[in-house]
Write a protein that binds this DNA or RNA. Structure first.
Lengths: 116, 116
DNA sequence: CTGAGACATTGACGAGCGTCGATGTATCGG
DNA sequence: CCGATACATCGACGCTCGTCAATGTCTCAG
C-alpha cells in the first residue's frame, strides 16, 4: 500500500471541517421544517395566524379545497410537530397556533444569520 | 331541493374565513421549507453558516456521511431553492449561503408572529 | 493531446408522503 | 336509545424523494 505523494502537489483545498450538528439535531430540525413543507399545511398555519381565536375544523375544511380526512391528516401532523394545539369544545375541534413552536423554527433560521 | 333549516338550530360554529394565501404563494412557501426538510441539507446549511468563506464540495462530502453524488444532489436542491450560491474555482466548486434566501424563510415565520 | 481528479448527471430502487372513500368514534338533541 | 353531526382513523393508490453505482463533463498538469 503506497501513499500517493503526487496529491500533495495540487493546490490546497480541504482544511478540516468541524462537524457541528448531531444526527439527532439535524433530524429534529428537518422534521420541524418538514411539517411546513406542504402547501395545504402552509395555508392552515397562515389561516390560524390570522385569527386571534382558535379555529374549528368546520371552518378550515371549506377554505382548503381538500377533503375532510386530508385536513385532519394535516392537522395531526402539525400538532405532532409542535406547531399547533388542539382543543375540544363539545362536538367541535378547535385548533390554534403554538407560538413557541413557530418561534423555535424562526430561531433556527435566525441562528444561521448570526455568522454574518 | 329543500334547504335544511334544522341546521340553523345548532350552536353557531362557522363564521366565514377569508382565504388568505393564493395557491401559488402557498406552494412557494412550502417549496422553501421543503428545501430545509432533510437532515443532510440541514447539516449542509449549518456547516456553511459556520464558515465565513465559501466551502468546497471536497470538504462537505467527508463531513456528511453520504456519497458524493448525493451531496451534489442536495447542493443542487438548495441552490434551486435560492438558499445557496455556487461558485466555480478551477477544478473545485465552492458553495456559500444566500443570506437573502434564508432571510426570506425567516421573514415568513416572523410574519406569522405579527398576529400575536 | 492525454490522463487524472473534482464534480455533475443518469437510472434504478425502496421508502415515505398526500390524497381520497369508507368506516369508526364521540358528542349532543330529542 | 336513536339519529345526526363533527371529526378521526384505516386502507389503498400514485407520486415524489433520498440514496447509490455507474457514467459523463469539465478543468488542469504534463
Amino acid at each position: 500500500m503506497n501513499v500517493d505523494f503526487s496529491s500533495m502537489l495540487v493546490p490546497a483545498c480541504c482544511p478540516p471541517l468541524d462537524d457541528d450538528l448531531t444526527d439527532e439535531d439535524a433530524r429534529a430540525t428537518a422534521a420541524l421544517f418538514k411539517a411546513l413543507a406542504d402547501p395545504t399545511r402552509v395555508r392552515i398555519v397562515s389561516l390560524l395566524a390570522r385569527s386571534e381565536e382558535p379555529v374549528c375544523v368546520c371552518e378550515l375544511t371549506p377554505a382548503l379545497s381538500v377533503s375532510q380526512p386530508t385536513v385532519s391528516h394535516h392537522l395531526k401532523k402539525l400538532v405532532q410537530a409542535g406547531l399547533l394545539r388542539r382543543e375540544q369544545r363539545g362536538v367541535w375541534a378547535y385548533y390554534h397556533l403554538d407560538r413557541d413552536g413557530l418561534e423555535r423554527a424562526a430561531t433556527i433560521l435566525d441562528l444561521k444569520e448570526v455568522t454574518i
